[in-house]
């Protein structure tokens, strides 16, 4: 497989959740999401009820993938920020450390400037955690994954309708 699996551990999950909670609060945003580049939701904070977070994660990743395809066409390394302005809500999408996508949804209670400022400040913190997570996942490569012990029966059981 290309690249190692992403593995999230309890400790880092708590740290990441705390950081995006803080971002949501400090930027006065409605909701913040952290999504991996393949479209899987990692964490969220704020008014998540009423938003289909799985779909949001997949579409965001598609959006970032298409944007980075455009960047490469133009000889740019990456367009690291995408911003969409709506009548009521706006969405600010940015790449963190080339690994994950930070999504901030906000309305007129705050401003794009404040969101950008807070996102930039917090991105380094998040990037550090994801770097150490990647190292931890690699060094724990020899340790057991939850799937090492599964049996063929366990798998078959999933499909017994």
């Amino acid at each position: 497989m290309a690249g190692p699996q992403m593995i999230m551990f309890d400790q880092e999950f708590k740290q990441i959740s705390a950081i995006i909670e803080r971002l949501n609060h400090e930027a006065n945003a409605k909701v913040c999401y952290l999504v991996d580049k393949n479209g899987q939701l990692i964490a969220s904070a704020g008014e998540t009820a009423g938003i289909d977070s799985t779909s949001l994660a997949s579409l965001t990743a598609g959006n970032i993938a298409a944007t980075s395809g455009l960047a490469k066409l133009l000889g740019e390394n990456e367009f690291s920020i995408v911003f969409h302005e709506g009548q009521r809500d706006n969405i600010h999408i940015s790449l963190v450390g080339q690994r994950v996508i930070l999504v901030v949804i906000f309305d007129s209670r705050t401003s794009l400037g404040l969101v950008r400022l807070k996102v930039r400040k917090i991105s380094n913190e998040l990037a550090d955690i994801f770097n150490s997570l990647a190292q931890k996942a690699q060094s724990s490569g020899s340790q057991k994954t939850p799937f090492e012990e599964i049996t063929d029966q366990d798998i078959d059981k999933l499909f017994s309708d």
Binding site: M6, I7, M8, D10, Q40
Partner: peptide, 15 residues
């Protein structure tokens, strides 16, 4: 690249 989340005890795969 599957995503194993020990915190929420989830595993996500892409087909």
């Amino acid at each position: 690249m599957s995503f194993i989340n020990w915190a929420s005890r989830e595993i996500n795969c892409k087909i």
